[in-house]
Amino acid sequence: MIWNSKGLGRRAVLSGAAGLGAAALARPALAQERFPSKPIRMFVPFAPGGTTDVQMRALCDAASRRFGQPVVVENRSGAGGILGAQALVGTRPDGYTLAQMPVSVFRYPQMVAKPPFDPLKDFSWILQVTGYLFGVVVRADAPWQSFTELLDYAKANPGKVNYGSPGSGTSLHITMEQIAQGRGIEWTHVPFRGVAEDLQALLAGQVNVSADASGWAELVKEGRLRLLCTWGAERARRFPDVRTLREQGIDVVSESPYGLAGPAGMDPAIVKALQDGFREALHDGAHLAVLDRLDMSVAYLDSAAYASAAQRQYEEDGAMIRRLGLKVG
C-alpha cells in the first residue's frame, strides 16, 4: 500500500485541530465544574441581629454546605438597605461577590438627584428567595390598642406621632407614607440603620411607633411591645389574633420580596450554578426553620423571572414615588 504523505499530513492537522477545539470547549466546562473554588462574599445591607441578617446567615450557611466553600456575610447597614447593591458596582463579575437586594434598591435611585447605580443595568439577578412579615408595634404601655386607634389619634393630632423604620425608601417607609396620604395624616418619619436600632429607640420612648420586619416578634411575645397590625395577605401564623391592614380598612398588602444579585456581566453558567445552589439552600431544613420562626415564606423565582420582576418593581415603584412626591435630600 502506498501512503499519501500529503493526505496524511492534512488528516493529522485536522485531527489535531479537532482535538484543540475539543480542549477549548472543555476548558469552560471544567471551570464551571470547579465553581466555586474559593469563598463567596455576601453583602447584607442591614445590621447584625436583625430579621434580614438572621435569615441571610441561615441561607448562607446552608449554601456553604452545598457549594463546599464558605459564603461569608458582610454587613453594610444604613442608607435604607442600598449599600450592599452599591458595593457590587465595579466589582469583578466572577460570582464571588454577591448581595442581598431589598426593594429599596429600585426606589432610592428614583428619589435622589444623583443615583449611585442603575438597577436595570448594573446587576446580574440570580434568584428571589423570600419576603418579610411587616407590622406596626408600639410599647406595651402605649394608649393605642389597634392600628385604627393610632390612625385616629394621628389624624386628630398632626405632627405629634413619629415612627421609626429601617430607612428612607424601604417598604416600611413607603407604605407608612401611603397610609398617611390616604388618611390625611401628618406624622414624622425617623429612619434607622436596622430593626435593632429602631426597636431600641421605641423602647426608650424616642419614637412612638415602629414599622418594621418581624424582629419585634419576641418582644411582642414577652409583652414588652404591642403588635397593632401585620401587612400580609393573611394573618401571621404566630400572631393569629392580630388583624391585617386589609382587615382594618386599608387595602394594602406589603411583603417586600427580595433576592440575590451580583455585578453586571456575569457568565450565565456561573449565574446558573449560583441560582441552583442557593435554591437548594433555600429549601434546607435549617433555613426553613428560621423562616418559620420569622413568619416568612419561600418566594422563589429563578434568574430570568427575578430579572423580569425587578423590571416591573422599578417601573411600579417609580410611578408610586412620583405620585407621592418622595425625595431624599
Rank of each mutant, 00 (worst) to 15 (best):
F106H: 11
V72P: 02
Q110M: 10
P115L: 07
P119L: 08
V103T: 09
V103Q: 14
P70C: 08
R65F: 00
Q86I: 07
S104M: 10
V89G: 09
I82Q: 12
D61M: 04
T97A: 11
D61C: 04
E74D: 12
V54A: 10
T97I: 15
V54R: 12
A62R: 13
P116C: 14
G81A: 15
N75P: 03
G90A: 07
Q110A: 14
D61P: 02
G84N: 08
P102R: 09
K114E: 14
R76Y: 02
P119N: 09
F67L: 11
R57E: 14
Y108T: 15
Q110C: 10
M111V: 04
A99P: 00
T91A: 13
Y108C: 15
C60R: 10
P102D: 13
V72K: 06
Q69D: 10
Y108A: 15
R66E: 14
G78V: 13
A85F: 07
D94M: 03
R92D: 15
Y108E: 15
D53Y: 02
V54M: 06
R65C: 14
Y96I: 10
V71R: 09
M111A: 15
R92M: 15
Q69G: 09
L83M: 06
A79I: 00
R76D: 13
R92H: 06
L120A: 05
F106E: 08
T51I: 06
G95F: 15
V105M: 07
Q69A: 14
G80L: 12
L120I: 05
G78L: 12
G78P: 00
G95C: 12
L88Q: 02
A63R: 08
V72N: 01
S64Y: 05
A85G: 05
G81H: 11
L120W: 06
N75K: 09
S104T: 13
G68P: 00
T52A: 14
G95I: 12
P109F: 04
F67G: 13
A99C: 06
C60T: 15
M111P: 03
A99H: 01
M111C: 04
G81P: 05
V112P: 01
T52E: 08
L83E: 09
D53Q: 01
Y108H: 13
L88A: 02
L98E: 10
V54L: 15
Q86H: 08
V105C: 05
V105I: 14
G80E: 07
A87P: 01
A87W: 02
L59G: 01
P70F: 11
T91I: 08
P119R: 15
F67T: 11
V72D: 11
D94I: 04
L83D: 02
Q69L: 07
V73L: 03
P109G: 15
Y96Q: 12
G84E: 02
V103D: 10
N75C: 06
R66V: 15
